[in-house]
Design a protein around this nucleic acid. Structure first.
Lengths: 199, 199
DNA sequence: GTTAGCATGTAAGGAGTTACATGATTTT
DNA sequence: AAAATCATGTAACTCCTTACATGCTAAC
């Protein structure tokens, strides 16, 4: 069971909220992970097949009436035969393991974990945030070294690029520091922790 | 001649400074495009082959002494047979076309163009910066709509993700505005334009 | 003489995309 | 009846990566 892609994690995390079919998963991805995270069907359906083959999700056995046999359904929308997937116990285990152990070196990977932070303990959340912070600080040092070493040889535009990269990284670090602070003080009002377990 | 990848543009741009072999190109990419831009050889060499087949670069005919025939060279480092590439006139044309017409929707694509801004006219530079700015402003609107539409349904952590995404985008826009301003005022001190044509 | 660094290249594979193919249901 | 939307899936392609294979030259 090789390390899962961000998409696999996101699908598992979404299915934890309840059984869903592919088309719906795609729509919800944009809501849960931010409007910029979109996935094509050509990527999503093969992903679902992989997850099913690994036993991390399964096709839901349509409880009660068999959808396919009904004609002219009673207001319950029938539509085309949809495959509704649900997460398996193995999928849950895998999801939690991946969520905690996930690499923090890649922005996408980190953001995918972050979007499902509500499923982690406060300690695990702080751990991931700290690891991400350390990584960004190392990145910042790389930027500084690069400026130091190449100072004379680099183009003014490259300089702008590097300086802007540093500013963006510094802003990311400040964001992480605020989040860590929020977690530590337990926050008592509109903060993250207990909220939005809306299901 | 399909639209070139960022790597192809970067290689052509680097070769405009003078003939180079693959190993050296890789080292210089990090200097010109910032420390985070690295490419593996497994990606670079096939790219060079593609560029040669398209006639955008050519193997330099070793002027003067033929490297391979010399034994025990006279202090000039011989090393292993290296293939030195140089940009062709077609490559130059292609480079300029791609540089000006390049998409601004993708961060990598834009940054690659930006790193070679010194080869563009002030008007072309301002044009690209403005197009990038418009794109980021549209992205910002997408973020805002997403918050508006999903307000009630989204998790507090997703909210943090979206808000941070917006802050980062706003910072990017301010950076672009500063750059546009610099270009317009023609800047008279340490600004971009005339500097660093150091070769 | 062995290790480190310079130098080029191939093979396999991962993770995504677009375009295509198909078909059901709802709205106009 | 046509068009839009819901719904699933495959095929071909892109662009990158890691791991491997090879070999030269300089330094210890």
């Amino acid at each position: 069971m090789a390390s899962a892609s961000s998409l696999e994690i996101a699908v598992l995390g979404l299915l934890k909220e309840g059984p869903m079919h592919g088309y719906e998963i795609r729509k919800r991805l944009g809501v849960t992970l931010g409007p910029l995270w979109t996935v094509s069907f050509g990527s999503l359906y093969p992903c679902l097949r992989r997850l099913r083959k690994s036993g991390l999700v399964q096709e839901k056995t349509t409880d009660g009436a068999d959808r396919r046999r009904r004609k002219a359904a009673t207001s319950t929308k029938t539509r085309r035969s949809r495959k509704v997937y649900e997460i398996t116990p193995e999928g849950e285990t895998h999801f939690f393991t991946e969520l905690e152990e996930g690499a923090v070196y890649d922005t996408d990977t980190f953001q995918t974990r972050f979007a499902f932070f509500r499923y982690l303990s406060k300690e695990a959340r702080i751990g991931l945030l700290e690891r991400r912070k350390v990584h960004l600080q190392e990145k910042l040092i790389e930027f500084r070294d690069s400026l130091q070493t190449a100072k004379e040889r680099i183009d003014a535009y490259t300089m702008q690029l590097i300086e802007h990269g540093m500013e963006a990284t510094e802003q990311d670090i400040r964001w992480l520091e605020r989040l860590i602070d929020n977690e530590r003080t337990g926050e008592g009002g509109s903060g993250p922790t207990g909220s939005t377990r809306n299901r």
